[in-house]
Design a protein around this nucleic acid. Structure first.
Lengths: 338, 338
DNA sequence: CTGAAAGCGCTAACAA
DNA sequence: TTGTTAGCGCTTTCAG
């Protein structure tokens, strides 16, 4: 659509060479104030907007970072997009989104990463998911600097931001076991930002501390991340089940548990405690309101971008694997004294 | 990071000119099968990934669309990103996100649109919000093809996708007025994807039909889109208020109303009906479950991309303003006979 | 302090 | 059917 004004136009208008224009738009300090003003004025008059594409070609830098995640993880990612967006904007990066596992047309992760490669994004932010290993292998193969959110990774030009999943799980389970409440059920969907395997390890370690055993085959139930699926599943389940604690890896699943339990006449928290994770609005809205583990997702997004740009600029980095802190938010699905 | 293989490398490897390589990667039909195979093989061997940036410079096309929205609208936009992402991928476009009104560093819409201009995105998707007029003026000024979601707009190289806000509001209010229930409260946050002004017009028209008057100064309450703010507001409000119906422009606000009303001893739906909008998971999770207006947000995203690409390709377009259908989903916050 | 000129990697006439 | 060549709009030496 329409002719765009180029650096040549500005040069002509200002009566200088294009090299000079380039210098002023890049803030070079060597250009004489008077010339600079002339150029600036021409830029203003012509409403010149430097073409990032051309600049990208010339510099082999796009100042763009890509974020790639499966659609199913979107609920988690969305809360981070705030931090990712704000921070990239502040650091003058654009962000492009690439999603995987959409409906229908089988879109293997290879294809998605290939798109990222073609786009020449400077770096990429990945999110923990089932295929994360493969994703990491691919970004390494193409030497794309990356930071992954949700699980620890190591490697050149790689960083990671994550909550200590093992510790989170250990802490809550320990609390219950200390009170002799060992009938604990752990609920998790397949895709999860927090490393579920590690959480299970944390739970097991807590049981070991009390010389007890956590039976993952019976005390872990998988569920859908869609309430329409998980709620009916638990409505059935709680017809003949009750636990000291049901601990879920995401609030939405916890709400399904709470509602299904209550609908089966189980008093929450009097007869059963429920704890969710991520401290989302679901936890606030739920009745009774849901006790949840707060994880600063906005900050994780912001940190991820910052870390990635440090890697890109080869800045000094204290630690390329940053553990973010979590916090238990007690509400009404756990007993007062808990 | 590291040298990328270029079209020259492939040409040399295959023993042809770079023009031929360009032809095969662009699927030109004029190249002899045998040559094509040679080239394809070289591409394979070298793992060549065409540089989109260079291609963008050469063609003045980036096959990228930008989506810009205020952070505060993210809750709405997120549900559309699925449709936007899937559809752009299918049509071979990338999507870049640009958010406005983040914390702190005042980021006027002009600056954001300027970034879009510099990025040379082929087109942009905008979302109805307080500043939409200004946004439209800007994209017109820079002649960026655009489609806006959430409100009707007209113009060259512009399209829009929206629900009929006036009709939605008219229909629900009409239902109540027909039953002599005219004490209706309309609740809305400032930013909303659905055009709130139009909804109010729809409500007013319904009242007029019954020769009654809807007093916008008293029957409309503004609230925050944060539950932490809206719930306390309504907790206070319902100490001395009760209505036939509380109708909100988004489910989350409706849930705040439901919870606050119940906490003040108001029976929902026996004493007061509540209806939300967008039919989100909040509606399902809420107790009692929330009656809501379903709007196919995924499809809106998908349609927006499709429409935008039609505009970009100057394809035949039946209607550049497409109204999407809504549907009332009755649940437990409205009386059975309603 | 400023200008000339050589790319960056690819597309698209135009020739052959 | 294939190759040659001139850009696309900008950055960046290298001279001056």
């Amino acid at each position: 659509m329409g002719k765009n004004v180029t650096i040549y136009d500005v040069a002509r208008e200002a009566g200088v060479s294009l090299a000079t224009v380039s210098r002023v738009i890049n803030g070079s300090s060597v250009v004489k104030p008077k010339t600079r003003d002339k150029v600036l004025e021409a830029i203003q008059r012509l409403d010149f907007k430097p073409n990032q594409i051309a600049r990208g070609l010339a510099t082999s830098k796009t100042t763009t970072i890509a974020i790639v995640f499966p659609q199913s993880l979107f609920a988690h990612v969305k809360d981070m997009i705030g931090g990712i967006g704000d921070t990239s904007r502040r650091l003058d990066y654009s962000v492009s989104i690439y999603t995987t596992d959409e409906i229908g047309d089988g879109n293997p992760i290879e294809t998605v990463i290939e798109k990222v490669v073609k786009s020449r994004a400077d770096g990429v932010i990945l999110f923990n998911n089932e295929e994360i290993e493969k994703e990491i292998t691919l970004v390494n193969k193409y030497k794309i600097p990356a930071v992954v959110i949700g699980t620890r990774v190591t490697g050149d030009y790689m960083g990671s931001i994550f909550a200590d999943a093992k510790k989170i799980a250990y802490e809550v389970v320990d609390r219950y076991l200390a009170q002799d409440k060992s009938d604990i059920l752990f609920v998790s969907p397949k895709q999860n930002l927090i490393n579920v395997e590690e959480m299970i390890v944390g739970i097991q370690e807590a049981y070991q501390k009390y010389h007890m055993n956590f039976d993952a085959t019976k005390q872990v139930v998988r569920t859908s991340s869609h309430y329409e699926k998980s709620y009916p599943q638990f409505l059935e389940y709680f017809k003949n089940h009750k636990h000291d604690l049901v601990f879920t890896s995401y609030d939405k699943e916890a709400v399904a548990v709470v509602n299904a339990a209550i609908d089966n006449g189980i008093q929450v928290p009097d007869e059963m405690d429920v704890i969710g994770m991520m401290n989302t609005s679901y936890a606030l809205i739920c009745r009774p309101s849901l006790t949840s583990i707060h994880v600063p997702v906005y900050d994780m997004g912001a940190l991820a971008v910052r870390l990635l740009t440090k890697i890109l600029n080869e800045e000094e980095i204290e630690d390329k694997a940053v553990v973010i802190q979590h916090l238990l938010m007690p509400r009404d699905t756990t007993k007062k004294d808990f």
